[in-house]
Structure formats: C-alpha cells, structure tokens
Design a protein around this nucleic acid. Structure first.
Lengths: 96, 96
DNA sequence: ATAATATATGAATAGTTGCTCATATATTCA
DNA sequence: TGAATATATGAGCAACTATTCATATATTAT
C-alpha cells in the first residue's frame, strides 16, 4: 500500500494521541457519556491541570468534543471512530 | 467504560508503536506482502539500521513477524488487526 | 579462510512529551 | 463589586524516543 507523507503524518498524530495511558483512561471514562474536567480528574487521580492539558491535545485531534455549560466544560468522544479504534486495539492486546 | 491500569498500559504501547510516521510507512509497505529490511529501507529512504531498530519495536508489539531466509529477514504484518487499525485510523483522519 | 552481504544492536545525542506550578480567564454567587 | 469555582495556558523540567555511528553476528561466495 502506498501512503503519502502528509497522510502518514496525520495518522501518526492520531495514534500519538492514543499512545498515552492517561489519555486512554480519559477516553475510557468518556465512553459512558459526557463528563466535566473536574470529574475526569477526580476519577483518574490526576490534577485538573494535567487533564486539561491532555484534553487540549485530544480536542485538537478531534477525538473529544467540548460543550460549555455554565462554568463547567463537558467532554464527550467526538465520533464513533474513537471508540472503534479503542476497542479494536483492545482486541489486539487481549488475544495477543 | 472501565479499563484496568495494565490494560491501559498495554494499549498505550500498541498505539505508541503506531505513533511514528516511519513505522506507519513500514506497515503500509508490508500491506502488499513481505519484504526484507533492505527493500524497506530503500523504499523509505531510511538507513537499514534505523529500519531494523523500528522493526524490533514492531516485532515486540506483535505487529510484524520475521521470517529468515538465507541472510535476509523477510517481514510481514503479524495479523489482520494491524491493517484494520491502520485503515480505521486513515478513515478518521480523512473524513476528519 | 577471507571477503562481502544482510541484519541487529549498544551508546550517544537531539528532539519530543507530559507533568507540575503559577497564573490567567470565565462564570456564578453573596 | 469581590470572592469562589471551573477550566485553560505558559514556562520549565524530567523522562522518553528515534536517529546516527560504530560494531557485532550470521550467512553466502570465492
């Protein structure tokens, strides 16, 4: 298969976004529905700052989407590609 | 969704393996069939050493498989999860 | 046996990443 | 308005990554 340089670059950015334990745990939490930063941070034992930094990257890669409500920002998975990639990856590591 | 720490760790290793442009280009090449290190290196404009280093990581994550024949080592994709992850990822970055 | 070829590996280094800490912005409440 | 709450962001630093270069191992050819 042939892949152009810019596509390979985009693709590597996507997988990079999924290449960190904490980001994956954020995504796992969001699979059950939207959550604000604070709840994510609490659920993961991370600081809100660290979570916010990570969400920025995930947002930038269109893996999560933000919805502001009052002073909270609720995050959800952006589209179903995300959970499909997640579960397909999980398949691989489980029946490895 | 709940994910255990060790599973998140394994999953992040998998996606890390896919998070580099050159590794993705190696995988793309191998989608058409097996190739020895030298051919991969030539096709990608990388040194054989760099390719060999990368293949080591891909092998370790069970993304590629090696078959030795004479003094060459032919590499193939290990299983179909690999190309499925690759194409699912491409879907995401294309209709982004 | 010696040379040539194909691949692998270790050390060193330059570049990248993810965290913390301090601070900024935005919204609600008193 | 001023204090409190929720999130975002920039700088700085420690840890990790991918390459290069030198060298090692393995196989084939002369």
């Amino acid at each position: 298969m042939k892949i152009t340089e810019p596509k390979a670059a985009k693709l590597s950015e996507l997988f990079s976004a999924l290449s960190d334990t904490n980001r994956l745990r954020i995504i796992a939490q969001l699979m059950d529905g939207e959550l604000p930063v604070r709840a994510l941070a609490k659920g993961l034992g991370m600081t809100e700052s660290a979570v916010s930094h990570q969400l920025r990257g995930l947002r930038h890669m269109h893996l999560v989407r933000a919805r502001k409500s009052g002073r909270q920002v609720f995050y959800t998975l952006d589209d179903d590609h995300v959970s499909r990639l997640f579960t397909l990856g999980l398949d691989h590591v489980q029946h490895g």
